[in-house]
Design a protein around this nucleic acid. Sequence first.
DNA 1: CTGAAAGCGCTTACAG
DNA 2: CTGAAAGCGCTTACAG
Lengths: 345, 345
Amino acid sequence: MNIKKIAEMAGVSVSTVSKIMNNYSDVSEKTKQRVLEIIEQTGYSPSNSAKTLATKKSSLIGVIFAGEFNVEFTHPFFIEVLNSFKKQMGVLGYDLIFFSNEKFISSGDYFARCQHFHVDGCVIISGQKMEPAIRDLDMSSIPCIGVDLELKGKKSGYVMSDNYQISSKVVEHFYLLGYRELGFIGSTADSDISNRREAGYIKAIEDFGLAMNPTWFVHGEDFFEASGYAAMQTLIEKGSLPQAIFAASDLLALGAIRALKEHGLRIPEDIAIIGCDDIEACKYTSPTLTTIRQNKERLGVLAAHMLFDLINNQSEGGSFVVEPALIVRESCGSRLNAKPHQSSL
Amino acid sequence: MNIKKIAEMAGVSVSTVSKIMNNYSDVSEKTKQRVLEIIEQTGYSPSNSAKTLATKKSSLIGVIFAGEFNVEFTHPFFIEVLNSFKKQMGVLGYDLIFFSNEKFISSGDYFARCQHFHVDGCVIISGQKMEPAIRDLDMSSIPCIGVDLELKGKKSGYVMSDNYQISSKVVEHFYLLGYRELGFIGSTADSDISNRREAGYIKAIEDFGLAMNPTWFVHGEDFFEASGYAAMQTLIEKGSLPQAIFAASDLLALGAIRALKEHGLRIPEDIAIIGCDDIEACKYTSPTLTTIRQNKERLGVLAAHMLFDLINNQSEGGSFVVEPALIVRESCGSRLNAKPHQSSL
DNA sequence: CTGAAAGCGCTTACAG
DNA sequence: CTGAAAGCGCTTACAG
């Protein structure tokens, strides 16, 4: 079934059918109804490739994971942002195409892939390390939106959580509960996300007039549980522990808790911990984990609308920052209540 | 940049360039090298839509969630199967396209969508309820592979875990630990997965010569934590508890544990629990949760190869069943060790 | 071994 | 309001 057959069945020209399919106004209501009816009956759906070839618009959005795909696709944070993005993009009339890393793995040429599929735009999910090929795409004429990734091209924009606020809320929470000696567990130095959280944390510590102690700042090799465990081991071996620790991810926090427990330390009585991400496991651990939740749904919806506007030349790009929320559970307790004899400190 | 320009630059015809791009043998090595060099320099990537229009092959695989997308896309089990599938499909030269449910939501016509994009094949992820539109696709000439979904079309196949083995391994584990009174928490009656696990569980109970007590079989409204909690409440209110319970999902198990704890019951001392799925949270709960892990990676790879063979007419469809693994953690303990005075039973 | 030409199924000026 | 025709960028018999 194609447009030609529909035209024949309706006794009109191919042009007319095309106009009707694309909601042109200069068609008589009568022929419009007749054609629409036939389309309905036959279940005709126009060929996307022919349409794309003729218009250079595919109604397809490319999804790129700037980093190791394997990790990212199953990443609880990004997958939820993506889910929300996908829904919104669907409403706006777009479908998503996921590029295989393997196919072009040698060149890593995202721009070529975008041209290959004539995607109307791209969403680029931040990874551990930034590939140079991403920069090329960013600087191209293809609209791009970064998620937790600062894109700078003229046709680019990005969305991310307010990283300073994330850290600031953590420090405020610790502060109000009476904790004054704060530590941090981050990922590697080449992780933008970890670095931003750490920088914000340090700034917030200073803003609250607390003392900074670099000894209590440790780092893992990624955002996973084993890294948190190892980092906490290192910290414990140093012989000096802070009263409270902020981990740059929930998994890092969970790993740290495991290490602490193995050393007979109690959470939150001996040390308070706050994670980041609000993954599902936080609700089921012992203690349940206080954490920072990013507004993933809003991040996705925002990314979709920004991309849409970029595609339709209705915006110049730019960025949106979304406010995070502190989710209070059991892993923080209160230094003031739990140890009243020390509250005079 | 298009094939015509490449042809001009190389001083050959468009046909020749096309042949070279598609690895035809009847081209002289000399011109081949010259053209390849120009392609390399220009970074030329052929238009997928033009190619698809000409060949009716898109190298695109449609991904369909047969159910509520929102839930499935972030579903820890399916997303991992999909991740593995995607990787393997990438190696085989295909990219994935995710259909938006919204666009065609009124018709739900998956077949039309597949034609629209000229997908070479589809992978269909099982959902709670089966949409009739899936059946149409299944019966069409488009190759389809179901994940946890029994597809029956001539160009269809499916992969799933051996559901009998899942239940059988659970019963065996309970049995060897000394538990004889076994309960079950499932999802709704319209969930194929839950039903299969329950049927397998009942069969295994019989195979092991144990008594079946329907009182200990309860059901939630889905596979989530709240349902497990509610189901366990129901069971507790009945006044009679089994010695061990198998939950059709980890979340169901976690909810059940929460309810038990609230009633002062200990796990595994008072009641043993086994979940299903091996989600990440299992490792961090208290007690850590013994569960069944499906081989998600293998499921994905298998699905990819089956689909590939179906597309290339190298197979007649069929199905593969993958063996699950029991992951032993703390939620089962042992009736034999913990309560030696009862081991004489 | 190479190339001219038709065809894939659409859209879009343009003419009427 | 309607339609003929060129064009989008490929592939594929087919002729040479």
